[in-house]
Design a protein around this nucleic acid. Structure first.
Lengths: 349, 349
DNA sequence: CTGTTAGCGCCTTCAG
DNA sequence: CTGAAGGCGCTAACAG
């Protein structure tokens, strides 16, 4: 347990003054090379560790080199990858990160943010827990600390946001299904009260139009954006009279899983008898469901972009007062469902 | 962008002195309830944020409430879970954590540790990158900061270590194979120069003895603890004369994957024709290999224990000078291979 | 180019 | 129970 080595020890050892040492520490060119070398030797010999806390206290524009990262569920592979992407960028910029897992608890989230602020963060990236409100972010935003929201939005929060490209994603999904030979494509799940729903449905509508397909009213089925909602939606869809749908784009993967449940109840094999594409929001156990084609983002890339976004604001000292919608590249992860049975309409009779 | 509010602002607002405010901040009972309430009102009204950096600078026994966590590969689900376990414990103790992903790079690892020390960590938990040496940890250990090694050991490092229970694990593996009906069980991979190997082989030997099985010399095959080594080992094993092995315990999962490669080359179906149990060290793509039974630890539980270990040392101010071997509970994750063909010996002819 | 002086925001005596 | 003074390790101005 050695005593703390300070600039004074360094100064004494090198035979110079504190300020000279300080200049060396900051890599100033104002110090003679010989002197600098002496100081650096002292640093090595004494095992000196720079104390950023103290430095920071003194510096007038005291921006720390710490960013806070709060993630809603780190056990989820998606968010783990997201974190890795952030980590790489943060590290490369000479910053370190506080990381906390909120586990979908807004209480824990509030606590960790408070704690991080006490420790002094220069910026915050947060993938908010379900139920997070703009009010939860108000204080930190008011303090002038740049905040970036990833993956999930918080309505009314005046901060930068990094979300997936909803419109393009659904369009790509529709195109994918059309390429597989589908002509009767439904859109399942969600209600028109959310921004996400609106964007995705618009992509669906335009995707159909581009493929020269007619849009059928009954093919847009509103339902809760949950597994239960998905089961309900597919049930309603397949009970309709008229031409039967052979494929569906789901609002998200939770809905898609529900659709699978419903299909199986009807003795249909998902991915074979009926193609499903889900937006990758909930991102649970994807790998366990190979029949589900998902519209997803590259989590590491997304993490990197999020980190770049905060760091840019931190370094420039300008926080973006207005909300920014930054889109990310979408990738269709799987393409099963190439085996759709042409006679599927019989089954739905 | 509001100005920083300090204890002085608080004092002015509440009409008391700085020191009174300070006492309130520390939850001291020496302050009259009325006064305390006034101060707390000021805190709320002014949006005061406690500055731990400053507090820490002043406090003589300046232990921060920050622990550093360095993980070798966060994209690996195992380590993500491990991190979550640490996070939970760290958070619950009112600490925050710096997290860094070394990505198996000792250089990055060194950099992030240095960075964390500058920022002031009270303790460090590290799952070291491959190639980490005791020398890499020497400086931080000398400084009196508690260091805990998880998952992987670093030879010669005089720090607390949290590794899996090698002996018990192999014994359990052998028992598992015996329960499946195997009588000819081999041990593949590794050389007797490592502690891990010795422990695991001992478990194998004792496991056989407990089952009343004879130990055959040829069934202990030394080979590099790698995928290539595994392939080589199974090749050598199956080329032997005498009773053929029907199952094997592998030094680790890398070896097990190599064994799979070798089996497939011989047109054997792993998990059906030949049972394999691997120790879960490398932990790559486990989920993609359902035929592999692994001896694994519960990553979250391990993370929690690791965090408890550092925190105990941090809070007590006593770093454990001697290396501690703390074992963890082992779980057999899968039990495939119940279908071992009785006629497997023919195949090896 | 180097040394001196004065704090950053907070906590600790030590008197009142 | 409260106020005044000093200093943690560092950097910002100044002088030299």
């Amino acid at each position: 347990m050695q005593e703390r080595v300070t600039v004074i020890d360094l100064a004494r050892r090198a035979g110079v003054s504190k300020s000279t040492v300080s200049l060396v520490l900051q890599g100033s060119e104002l110090v003679h090379a010989t002197t600098r070398e002496k100081v650096q030797a002292a640093i090595r010999e004494l095992g000196y560790i720079y104390n950023r806390g103290a430095a920071n206290l003194r510096q007038h524009k005291s921006k720390t080199k710490i960013v806070g990262i709060v993630v809603n569920d780190l056990t989820n592979g998606f968010f783990a990858e997201l974190t890795v992407g952030m980590d790489a960028t943060v590290q490369a910029s000479g910053f370190v990160q506080f990381l906390a897992n909120s586990g979908e608890s807004v209480d824990r989230q509030r606590e960790v943010i408070a704690s991080m602020r006490e420790h002094g963060i220069a910026g915050l990236i947060i993938s908010p827990a379900r139920g997070t409100e703009a009010a939860d972010l108000k204080s930190i935003v008011a303090s002038g600390i740049p905040v970036v929201l990833v993956v999930r939005d918080v309505v009314g929060a005046k901060v930068s946001t990094l979300l997936s490209e909803n419109y393009e994603g659904t369009r790509a999904a529709v195109r994918h299904l059309v390429d597989l030979g589908h002509r009767q494509i439904a859109f399942l799940g969600g209600f028109s009260d959310t921004h996400v729903f609106t964007e995705r449905v618009q992509g669906y509508v335009d995707g159909l139009a581009e493929a020269g397909l007619e849009r059928r009213e009954g093919f847009l089925v509103n339902a809760a954006p949950s597994r239960a909602g998905g089961a309900e939606a597919i049930e309603r869809l397949l009970s309709q009279r008229g031409p039967a749908a052979t494929a569906a784009v789901c609002l998200n993967d939770a809905v898609a899983f529900g659709v699978f449940d419903g299909l199986r109840r009807r003795r249909l094999e998902p991915g074979v008898d009926f193609s499903v594409v889900g937006f990758d929001d909930v991102i649970e156990a994807r790998t366990a469901v190979p029949a589900l084609t998902t519209v997803s983002v590259d989590p590491q890339a997304m993490g990197q972009r999020a980190a770049q976004l905060v760091l840019k604001q931190v370094l420039s000292g300008r926080v973006e007062a207005e909300a920014i919608r930054t889109s990310v590249r979408l990738v269709v992860r799987q393409s099963t469902a190439a085996l759709v049975r042409p006679d599927i309409s019989e089954v739905t009779a």
